[in-house]
Design a protein around this nucleic acid. Structure first.
Lengths: 208, 208, 208, 208
DNA sequence: CATGAATGAGAGTTCATTCAT
DNA sequence: GATGAATGAACTCTCATTCAT
């Protein structure tokens, strides 16, 4: 009856178009994860997707567009998952641990995406040579900093430079994930509580 | 007539040969640091060293050999510097802080080398696609683990999985250096005590 | 049921078919005029016509067919316009000036078509590499030659090789149009009398 | 004795380097002349020169550089030849006829170069879509304009807009060469005096 | 009628490596 | 020791054309 009932598609991409784009983005992520950024060519992506090279350039204007999508889609999915977890907590420490736990859980469940995202963020550059994803983590750092500041005001956390500590914490999480993704002997389930314990001791108020 | 019959040193490389190799390795490091691993070609290394591309392939069999030297030479120099500092300390905490302090100091003094080393370690792969420098940090982790274990036996440090914590600590140091090397607004002198304070709170025995 | 049994006109193309073909040919002409022959692709023609690339290949078998139509349609329209003007004159000099005047007037009123036609004629080639429009001007040259020969017989024009001079005159007209179409500082209204004066002095009988 | 006797080479290109560059530029000119600008690829140039495609990109940075050299070298050689001829004449009409005669003679002796130069000038564009050789003829027009102005002051030539007529004359010459180069039935030796006669009648003072 | 999808050839260019001098 | 020269593979991207729907 209502002809405008479903305004879903924001850019009028057909179903098959979306499917192909998804397939190509996935193949790109898998290629980067396995072979590395520098070895990821359109030809290898096409090989992995078992399509011709021309299909890729038909659906995407440039290689850059594909790699950006690998990163941004992964970030969006990850943050959507994490946000829900974090908001269930009331205390700063609770939110922090929920944050880290959710991040570890999500990335652990998407090893390929994590490896690809990390590699692209670290290596992708614009034509001028500048890093293409310089500010991608800025938002994350700010969010964590706010949580830490709240915990300090509540007396839950001891005194420290919140922004710097937020960066340190994010690095430890990222580093652990990298070890796990790279080193097959690394047991994430075993390492996670060690990391959480490490962080809790580092930041909570001494009297508690 | 006679002087080229004499046995040439124990190393088979002449002085000029060594000088050239050093010049090329330095130029390679500078190129990787500035332009990134994927943009580092022999042509660009030659440009920076102001030599012809042929000189490079005369002194090195492959590009791989050059990049490996950038990494291993930097590691050797760095460890030599750090080892001296660490051995002056008696306590575990003292050795740990000396370790981190020395690492930060050395890398801060060799920004180009650090950036190049990091980029190559993260990106360089064998022809089979596997990481070329997978075990480069294993030795470091073991050394730090030993220090932590000692500290726990002495009661100086609280109970935790030493190996995992060693890895975490090394990651925070590496992450801080990366931030400093990449982000011009990052003040290393300001961040260092924050990091040390963070680590100390995380690991020392509670009663102390 | 019945109306599609009737024989469809003498031309096998429906109204909508013709409209589409005209739209595409116009878009092709505009594209060639603006971007040049070598930069004219089916994709860019489709862009300009705001249709999908598939529409073009549905209505035309090949790109060649479109470009040929740009040229031949423009020639036909131009000659139709010029012929009427020329036939109103009685003297050779009158017909010549009417010819040139009409050509300048028509092409000046169809700058895009002129540019496209010129570019395609100059560049379009068959698969063997030979010019596709070699003989397109032959008819024109013959017509002008006949006029000049008439003028010589009437004593209106001096002695010269009529065919060669016809070619020379046509080249000057074409050249002037090219200057005007290419160079925004070229004022056609100002240049036209200069050219006509030049030609008249070059060919009329000396005693006149 | 004098070590700086021959300051010939302005850009220290070796003999073999110059030879290769010349060979490639010649092959490029021949390819453009035969197949046309749009069909001229590095692969076809390499084919004609019987070298690998890589040789071309070793000696030239871009295709653009090669095509520019085809044009500028041809212009330089041509003007060098023509200048000598023109300067032997004293009168304006003499210089004009020497100019045209020399131009026809030189280009007639270098048919391939002429075709290539014309095609490249007409078609080559910068990345912004603008013609790459817009001002290449400006110098020529100015030189001829000066000669015509001199002739008018001496009373040798009648009154007309010198600059416009200079353009017209150059167009007739270029047009004749194009006809000759394109049409195998065109006899340049036969057409040249017709053109010169045409021009002389068009511009000389009536009383003469 | 119309089009989105796909394709393979070919474009210019960069590259690590080999080789003769 | 050193280097200019050459090579062929691989790169991203554009293209005219074909085809199923």
């Amino acid at each position: 009856m209502q002809n405008d009932r479903e305004p879903v598609a924001q850019k009028k991409l057909s179903f098959i178009e979306e499917a192909r784009r998804g397939q190509i983005v996935d193949a790109a992520a898998a290629t980067v994860a396995e072979l590395g950024y520098a070895q990821t060519s359109l030809a290898r992506i096409a090989d992995r997707a078992q399509i011709s090279k021309g299909v890729i350039t038909y659906h995407f204007a440039t290689k850059d567009e594909i790699l950006r999508l690998v990163v941004t889609q992964f970030f969006e999915q990850g943050w959507e998952f994490m946000e829900g977890r974090i908001l269930t907590q009331d205390t700063a420490l609770g939110q922090l641990l929920a944050w880290i736990g959710a991040e570890l859980e999500f990335f652990a469940a998407h090893r390929t995406g994590f490896l690809a995202m990390s590699d692209i963020v670290a290596n992708h550059r614009g034509t001028d040579g500048s890093h293409a994803f310089g500010d991608e983590f800025a938002e994350e750092i700010q969010g964590l900093t706010d949580i830490l500041l709240g915990g300090q005001q509540d007396g839950e956390l001891r005194a420290f430079d919140a922004r710097s500590v937020a960066q340190i914490i994010l690095r430890t999480v990222d580093g652990l994930l990298m070890s796990w993704a790279t080193d097959p002997t690394c047991d994430l389930a075993e390492q996670t509580p060690v990391l959480l314990d490490f962080i809790v001791h580092a930041i909570r108020a001494e009297s508690s």
